[in-house]
Every structure is written in C-alpha cells, then in structure tokens.
Design a protein around this nucleic acid. Structure first.
Lengths: 250, 250
DNA sequence: TTGATAATGATTATTTTTGAACGAATTAAA
DNA sequence: TTTAATTCGTTCAAAAATAATCATTATCAA
C-alpha cells in the first residue's frame, strides 16, 4: 500500500463521508496512524483537504459543472442531421467560425477530414478537433466554466481581428423579431462572429423556431441562412425576410 | 522474454489491477527485480505509467474524456516536489501566468483550491483547471497541436494586454549565458510572459541546469527566481547573477 | 570464430518509507 | 480553572526500495 494508493483511498472516503478519521483510516488501510497523519498533512499542503484534529474534512464541495457531452447528446439524431447539412456547405480551404452551442459542437465529427481553418471559442470543439487535420484558432479571453467557452471583451476584440467565409452559430430562440440569447455574453460573441463572416448560418432544432427568450440582440438581417429540422410553415417568416432556409425535412 | 514482451505484460497487468508490484512482476515474468525496475523507469519516461516506490500506477486513474500526451509522467516525483515549492509562492488573490511546459502543468494539482486567476496558453492546464475554483483566462491564437498550446503573434499581443504578479515558466536549458528554448515560438511566449509579470519563476529539474540548447533567447536578468531540485554547486552561477534560488534539496 | 554492443544480473551504498517512542500541544471534561 | 485524554510533531531506528557500479550473458555482424 503505497502513497498514491492511499491518497486515492483517502480522497475517496472523503468524498463519500465528507470527513475522515485517522484511527478509522489506520485500521481500514491497515497502516500505522503516524503514516496516515503524514499523508493527511501532505494532502493538506497540496490543498486537497482541510486538516482537523484527528482527521480531515473536504475542502470545497464543488460539484462538477454540467456535462457538455450529455447536453449535446440530447436530440442527437436531429442535431446530426442538421450538422450533416451544415457540413455539406463547407469546402476545403474555408475559414469558418464555430460558436459554443451544443448543436454546433456536433458539427465537429463531420468536418474532421476537411482541409479548413476553424476559429472558435468553444473548449469542447477545440478538444474534439485536436487529433485531426483541421487547423484550429482559439479565441482568447476569460473562460466561462459553465458554458465551457471563452467570452468577454478580449474575446470580442480577438474575433474582430479575423475574417471568415462562414460562421456556424447556435441560438436560444428565433422569431420575426430576430435572434434571442439567454445571456449578454453569448449575444455579443454571436454578433461578432456574424459581423466578421461573409455568410452566417444558424444551426438550430425546431424547438427554437418562433421562441422569444430573454435578450433580442439582433434582427434577422444579421444572418444569411438557417439550417434546421423545422417544417415549412413555421419557417415561412424567415424566407419572407430574405433568410435562406435549409431544412432536413424536405 | 524481451523488453517489448515484458512491456506488453506490464501494461496489461496495469490495466487490470490499476497498479503493479515489482516483486510480483519479477516472479510472474521470471525475471530479476532490477530489470523490472529498469522497465518501469523506461515506461515512466515514455509517459505510460507513474512510477511509485515498489511498483507503478496508471497514468490517469480518473477517467478523462480527452487525454493529453503525458510527458509529465517523467520524473513525476521530482516535478511534484518542485511544484509544491512553487505553489507555496502563490497567495489567494494572485494573478499568475502559466506556460505550456510539462513541469508547469503539474503545478495545477497544487493550486486547485486557491482563489486565483490563471492566464495560460496551455490546453492541458486549461483542461485540468476546469472543475475547480480557479478563474481561467485563455491566451488566444493559433493552436499548436504538437505542443497542445497556443502560439503566434496574436497570442503575443494577447499576453501583452495583461499584467500578472507572477509567471511560472518552463525552459529547455539555463546557463550563465541565460535561457534556452527549443523553438522560436516557445521563446517568444516565454519572453512575453516574463515581460508582463512582476516576478518570474522558472520551474525546471536538474537536467536543465547548465544545459545550452538551440536558442539563447534571453539573459538571466529576465527572471526573478528559479525553483529546482539541482544541488548547491550547480546553482551558484544563478545566485551570482542575482537570481533567487529555491531548491527542493536543502 | 571473434569482437563489439546491448541486455541482464549481482553487489553494495544510498535514499525513501514506515513505524515506535516520547515530550509538547490541543481539546474535552471535571 | 484545572485535570485528563487525545492528538501532534520530532527524533530515531529498521526495513524496503533504489541507484550506481561492475560482472556476466546474449546477440549480432564481420
């Protein structure tokens, strides 16, 4: 029973019970109390727990931020169909923006073998494109851990330095009034991407069509096209406003 | 029973049990303990496992969705000792730079519970600090997939916008002539970090001391302190040049 | 075969880890 | 406040693991 093994067990116990007791650990791990004491001291120095008399407690009950993978798995079939359509719009040599939506994320799998440059603020996209031919440019700035993406004024400035052919963006809602987002941060990033690309594609499933939520940050003239699974009728207002509609239902 | 064969068996055992024991391997493979030790050391250098006293453990006991190349398994013990010393220099409220070296990466585990801001160009660092209290700022620019870090002129510009209290940097070599790097990219990033922080710490193991390799990109006056496991004698030239020396050997 | 090179094993000194003892410090109880 | 009981850290010693050195064996090419 070496230190790494003990360390693992101790952290495990700590996560289960919230606190540990030296005597109890000593008997359970079948090791002397002084060694446990030394272990706990070391782990306390490393900031992995708080030392107390006779034991230790958890340092910070921070629960893992929402799993991005799970969210992106919702409606996977629909999203994949949308992304296949989107990928068909991308040619070798293109420079494209990708934002941090869960739908846009699923576009990654369809572009891995294309010879393109991707500029993105989304960590999952970056990770996903790591071991493939795609050249990646990362938007710098503050990391929003909740959204696993970069945002803030530095990010906006960074985006404004680049020009892309196409932008692939997510959205929280879209109606005749324009585009809707659930936060200022998202809205400003989306606007910047759109402003610096020749063509702007919105990727969204049918639930977002006609939905008006929180912040109405731009009109429909910001975008060139929408790629969705919505049906003809619900998309009429987009066509009327000069937005190209690509639907997985035909 | 040659090395590739043994290597296969060892990795196999490791995946089954999570850890291996030298004595046990020696009897099972019917080979001397010293040879097993040599094998394990080699595999640790290759980043395939972590060496422990009496055996080895898997590199990443907690399953991660994305794995990064793990050069940091090499000399893990030495690097951890260096990083503990480094972590002791960091106070709550600090804003720090971290670059993309394998030693600097191991600093992550010791700062997870500190209330600090980290500005970095290293993807592994970003990933490692994702589920903790540390606030992260990502340097933007082109992604170097080889080094899993951001570089380029945009990155330099980005760094120049920020000011940090302390910079923790790796290096490929250091001698009386100054600092050495294996690439222009690395050198320019390191220089920028140093130029924009009040204190600059170099984290390096003893093998880098006195080593002159490829590009001599800066003098010793660039840095404030060095944190290393080198011995007194080999570090004298640093003290003579006004560099504070923090050594794990005392 | 012969010589050179690499891999393996044995020996020994050094380092690391662990446990025990005991006085000091801390907490809890009277 | 005083006393008793833990718990803690330091020191020391033993055991285990390791690194360093040298000897032996195996491998391979000429």
């Amino acid at each position: 029973m070496n230190f790494p093994k003990r360390k693992q067990k101790i952290i495990e116990q700590l996560n289960q019970r919230g606190e540990v007791d030296i005597k109890q650990l000593a008997t359970e791990l079948d090791i002397s109390e002084i060694t446990i004491r030394r272990d706990l001291n070391q782990l306390a120095v490393d900031g992995l727990l708080y030392r107390t008399h006779g034991g230790a407690t958890k340092v910070n009950p921070l629960e893992r931020p929402h799993s991005f993978v799970n969210k992106s798995a919702q409606n996977a079939g629909v999203k994949d169909a949308i992304c296949r359509l989107a990928a068909a719009q991308i040619n070798d040599g293109d420079i494209i923006f990708m934002d941090c939506g869960s739908t846009v994320f699923r576009l990654c799998q369809f572009i891995k073998n294309k010879k393109i440059k991707v500029i993105t603020n989304s960590l999952p996209v970056i990770y996903e494109l790591q071991d493939c031919a795609v050249s990646v440019n990362i938007i710098g700035g503050e990391l929003d851990k909740e959204r696993q993406a970069v945002h803030g004024t530095t990010a906006i400035e960074h985006i404004n330095k680049y020009r892309a052919i196409k932008a692939f963006l997510g959205i929280d809602g879209i109606s005749e009034a324009g585009l809707f987002a659930n936060s200022e941060h998202e809205a400003s990033i989306t606007s910047s991407f759109a402003a610096n690309s020749a063509y702007t594609y919105i990727l969204c499933d049918a639930t977002k069509i006609g939905k008006e939520t929180y912040l109405n940050f731009a009109g429909l003239n910001l975008i060139s096209a929408i790629i969705t699974n919505g049906d003809e009728d619900s998309l009429l207002f987009l066509k009327r406003n000069g937005v190209t509609v690509l639907s997985t239902k035909r």
